[in-house]
């Protein structure tokens, strides 16, 4: 019964009200509240991404556990060097994103743009390597699903293996969906670089950079698991 209507806005509210930063939306009390909300929202979104990928990891685990030898043999036909190179590329891009956030927190906009562009370049490199990997597989009839018809010295032995199509289905679906995430990330990072160039960000407000960074690290983490599971073991 003792619900009071707040007699007056608190001091901070008042202060916010006076200079009212343009990025502050009306329903938030302070920039801090807005930033924390955005960040928590991003983390919640990230766990939906984790759960999305988990489905494919379950499929992988089940079929691998049923056919360990086939999976080992099929994984042997993937190009480990390209996989390892791509791992390093993605890890580096994670570093550059972290450095971009590091820079914008200190108002070094120019540096932030360079790091973002560097990330974009590395992500592009990742996709190029992926393209060559896919093409090498398609040339030898290694497709996902019904079109699976391996031929050529390196792949022939897969034709008689019962669960080899499953391995490659899982491989293409997992890396494909991961690739889609990389492309989405590239688009967003490109937009961020443009916004930074136009001077949208400062140490006062860099929420989009921070959130995209989180997203990009998650894409990296997924690959950290995909690499050994698909290429190495």
């Amino acid at each position: 019964m003792a619900t009071e209507t707040a007699p007056a806005p608190t001091e901070r509210e008042e202060a916010e009200h006076d200079h009212h930063p343009e990025h502050l939306q009306h329903h938030f009390v302070s920039s801090k509240q807005q930033f924390d909300s955005a960040k928590l929202g991003m983390w919640v979104f990230l766990i939906t991404e984790v759960l999305l990928f988990s489905g494919m990891f379950v499929a992988y685990a089940v079929f691998r556990q049923w056919n360990p030898d086939v999976f080992a043999a099929a994984s042997g036909t993937l190009d480990q060097a390209m996989g390892a190179a791509n791992t390093v590329v993605l890890l580096t891009s994670s570093l550059t994103v972290a450095l971009a956030i590091h820079a914008i927190k200190q108002d070094r906009v120019q540096r932030c743009i360079y790091y973002l562009l560097g990330t974009l370049g590395l992500a592009g490199g990742f996709m190029v390597v992926k393209y060559f990997e896919y093409m090498a597989k398609f040339e030898h009839g290694v497709f996902p699903g019904a079109a699976f018809d391996p031929h050529g010295a390196h792949y022939e032995h897969l034709a008689e293996m019962t669960a080899a199509p499953q391995f490659f289905s899982i491989y293409f679906v997992m890396t494909g969906i991961h690739g889609v995430h990389v492309i989405i990330g590239m688009i967003v990072i490109g937009v961020l670089a443009l916004m930074a160039w136009r001077g949208s960000f400062s140490s006062e407000w860099y929420t989009p950079v921070e959130l995209t960074g989180l997203y990009w690290h998650l894409v990296d983490i997924v690959w950290i698991f995909l690499f050994p599971l698909l290429y190495l073991i």
């Binding site: 919640v44 988990s54 994670s94 570093l95 994103v97 960074g213």
Partner: peptide, 28 residues
């Protein structure tokens, strides 16, 4: 912990991520 800043961040974010991970383990 470091790139995503979770070591220095609001604990609720860490909790969120942990719960998500636990449910992946449960699923598998």
């Amino acid at each position: 912990l470091f790139f995503m800043h979770l070591k220095y961040d609001n604990p609720v974010n860490a909790l969120t991520f942990t719960i998500g991970t636990i449910f992946v383990v449960v699923f598998v």
